[in-house]
């Protein structure tokens, strides 16, 4: 079980993995995630399910190499096995015919927004997707997003592809200049992006959903490490979310909680890289 059947780099520091997990593939719905443990002494980390193949029994995940665990994962070869994979976890995203929906994926959030956009389009929504990256070569899943959407709009920070600027600039244009009638916005990506989208749509009273990514351990509701403040109330992102009404989310608290172990994470990664370097000498 949990055999890696594909590990391919699809951009700087980002790999796409296909993992054998038939039970999860059979069940997963858009918006859900898995928890993996790479090796026997490893930590548990949450990762969004980007795609599933029920027939062949595998799931697809996209993972950005940011620290020790994701680095270890990036080095695993086809045929190697992950120690643990559990899921699908979390409440699936709300998929209904809302009318016109804007799906925004910032940087790495594209992998998470993709299955949701696809599902929304399948049930009859007019899906305008906005994706973005710092540069053209960092843009993820362009073709997949195009297929999953009625319209795809792209922004790059440096203007090397699509519109120059942020995904929020495109959203503003849609709402302010084009006066599009938007029934719902879904935004997944870095917290500053989700917060910017939320602040903006709040003014126009457009229902906005974000997928939150706090620190998690078990992912099944038993510890509260992933607790977030939504409408002033404590919610566990792993069992009550990860999707929440953006206008109710305390983003500042989320950011602070995300960075609590930054020093430990850095130390762990540096030690690992040193060890790694020695081994390869």
């Amino acid at each position: 079980m949990y055999e890696i059947i594909e590990n391919k780099s699809i951009g700087e520091g980002v790999n796409i993995y296909k993992i054998n997990a038939p039970d999860i593939a059979a069940k997963a719905l858009p918006g859900q995630f898995i928890i993996i443990r790479v090796h026997k002494k490893g930590e548990r980390i949450p990762i969004t399910i980007a795609e599933t193949d029920k027939n062949y029994g595998y799931i697809t995940i996209l993972v950005q190499t940011l620290g020790k665990t994701t680095h270890l994962l990036s080095e695993m070869q086809k045929g190697e096995k992950l120690s643990d994979v559990v899921g699908p976890l979390g409440i699936p995203s709300e998929i209904e015919n809302f009318g016109t929906v804007v799906c925004i994926g910032g940087g790495f959030g594209i992998a998470a927004v993709h299955p949701i956009a696809k599902a929304l389009k399948n049930v009859g929504n007019y899906v305008i997707s906005i994706t973005g990256a710092r540069r053209k070569d960092l843009l993820l899943m362009e073709n997949e997003m195009r297929n999953a959407s009625s319209e795809l709009l792209i922004a790059t920070d440096d203007g090397s592809y699509g519109t120059k600027g942020f995904v929020t600039d495109i959203l503003k244009k849609l709402i302010v200049d084009d006066k599009k009638n938007i029934d719902r916005v879904i935004a997944i990506g870095p917290v500053p992006m989700m917060k910017a989208v939320s602040d903006f749509t709040k003014k126009y009273d457009i229902k906005t959903i974000v997928s939150l990514n706090p620190i998690m351990i078990d992912g099944t509701g038993m510890c509260g490490a992933c607790r977030v403040l939504v409408g002033g109330k404590t919610k566990f992102a792993c069992v009550d979310g990860p999707d929440f009404d953006a206008h109710q989310v305390d983003f500042e608290n989320l950011v602070n909680r995300q960075r609590f172990y930054k020093d430990e994470e850095k130390t762990s990664y540096e030690c690992h890289q040193k060890e790694h370097h020695k081994e390869h000498q």
């Binding site: 002494k41 490893g42 930590e43 020790k68 609590f260 172990y261 430990e264 994470e265 762990s268």
Partner: peptide
Amino acid sequence: MNEYDTPMK
């Protein structure tokens, strides 16, 4: 924490 990856303060 030298051996296992989960952090604690």
